[in-house]
């Protein structure tokens, strides 16, 4: 197992280097002088221009600049935001819990709803439930989620007045930021209604973000289940007179879950891309909205580091999925 982990880690090194090169190249590929771009409309004097260039290392050899960049990354220095002047890493870390919270709840919804639907559809193959749920899954899979979010706002916030339109919690409540996760912090604060308010704010965005993963998981579960149900050991279990519930629950489901767990893990990239849209629609203060705002404000150090951090996170999660897969399935490990 150690060898497996080590070989996976080694495999990631070139990808990681590639990601740093992309992030490094980004501000240098932009049209125009980065220093002038950073200065904005006010412009800079030639002396100040030279000073900033030297400060950012733009006057050095490009290869040296790259090593500088990577070296600073390893010291946790991701540069400063042009807008707030604060370190990008600390901004990222403040906003990241909001995205994790949203993404986590979304993937839990997607798995809790998607897996049972897929299992039922497979067991009752060809039934009206199968046809209906798989049609719904295809619609979910094809959904422009930015529009879906707007529709839900029209219905649930506009017409019914059930849910708020934006933000993470009602302004009525104020409590210290302990974990950054609103659901936990509101409980810790002990204020009446705070937790409910947080749930209220979370529900629409997480349903919107869950839509596509839910559809993917339901479809994947169904096909994995169908495949397993056709296997010999399932037939043997049935032939032995085992109750159907046990055949499906123990023999089939456990084996069908392996590809499904992988699918769930691989949804993380989809979730982060979806978070960009969902957070924009619901004014959710997470990293998706932050990236969009940084791009439109031309806050390039933020975009650069955000790109790097997001890709790094996706890479790490994929590694974890890989390792879990190896843990469950020895055949993969020893290949």
């Amino acid at each position: 197992m150690l060898r497996f982990i080590f070989s996976r880690l080694l495999y990631l090194v070139p990808t990681f280097l590639g990601i740093t090169i992309v992030a490094f190249a980004f501000p240098r590929l932009l049209k125009g002088d980065p220093v002038l771009l950073m200065a904005g409309e006010r412009g800079v004097t030639p002396e100040r221009h030279a000073e900033i260039s030297a400060q950012l290392g733009f006057d050095k050899n490009i290869v040296l600049q790259y090593f500088d960049f990577v070296g600073r990354l390893f010291q946790g220095d991701f540069g400063n935001s042009l807008v707030t002047k604060k370190p990008v890493l600390s901004e990222f870390l403040t906003l990241f819990p909001a995205t994790i919270e949203l993404g986590f709840v979304a993937i839990v919804i997607a798995a809790l709803v998607g897996v049972p639907i897929g299992v039922l559809a497979a067991i009752k193959r060809g039934s009206w439930f199968d046809q209906l749920s798989m049609s719904a899954a295809l619609v979910g899979f094809s959904m422009p989620i930015f529009w879906w979010g707007l529709l839900l706002i029209i219905v649930f916030s506009g017409n019914l007045g059930w849910t708020p339109v934006s933000g993470r919690i009602s302004l009525m409540y104020y409590f210290p930021n302990v974990t950054g996760f609103m659901l936990i912090d509101s409980l810790l604060s002990g204020q009446k209604g705070a937790f409910l308010s947080a749930v209220h704010h979370l529900i629409l965005p997480s349903v919107v973000l869950a839509t596509i993963p839910l559809a993917v998981i339901a479809r994947q579960t169904r096909s994995a289940m169908l495949e397993v149900l056709g296997e010999d050991y399932v037939r043997t279990a049935r032939a032995k007179g085992m109750p159907a519930r046990r055949v499906i629950g123990v023999h089939a489901l456990r084996n069908a879950m392996i590809p499904v767990v992988t699918t769930i893990g691989l949804q993380i990239g989809v979730l982060l891309a979806g978070a960009i849209l969902t957070e924009t629609i619901f004014s959710w203060p997470g990293i998706g909205k932050w990236m969009i705002d940084s791009i439109s404000r031309r806050d390039y150090p933020s975009v650069q580091s955000g790109l790097l951090l997001v890709a790094g996170i996706v890479m790490l999660v994929n590694l974890l999925v890989d390792l879990t897969y190896g843990l469950i399935n020895p055949r993969i490990r020893n290949k």
Binding site: T15, G18, I19, I21, V22, F26, G269, V270, L272, A273, I276, L277, M291, I292, I295, V303, L307, V310, A311, V314, M315
Partner: peptide, 13 residues
């Protein structure tokens, strides 16, 4: 490397 980035994010950048 290209696949490591969420597609919409990379397209945006």
């Amino acid at each position: 490397v290209i696949l490591a980035f969420p597609s919409l994010l990379l397209a945006l950048v």
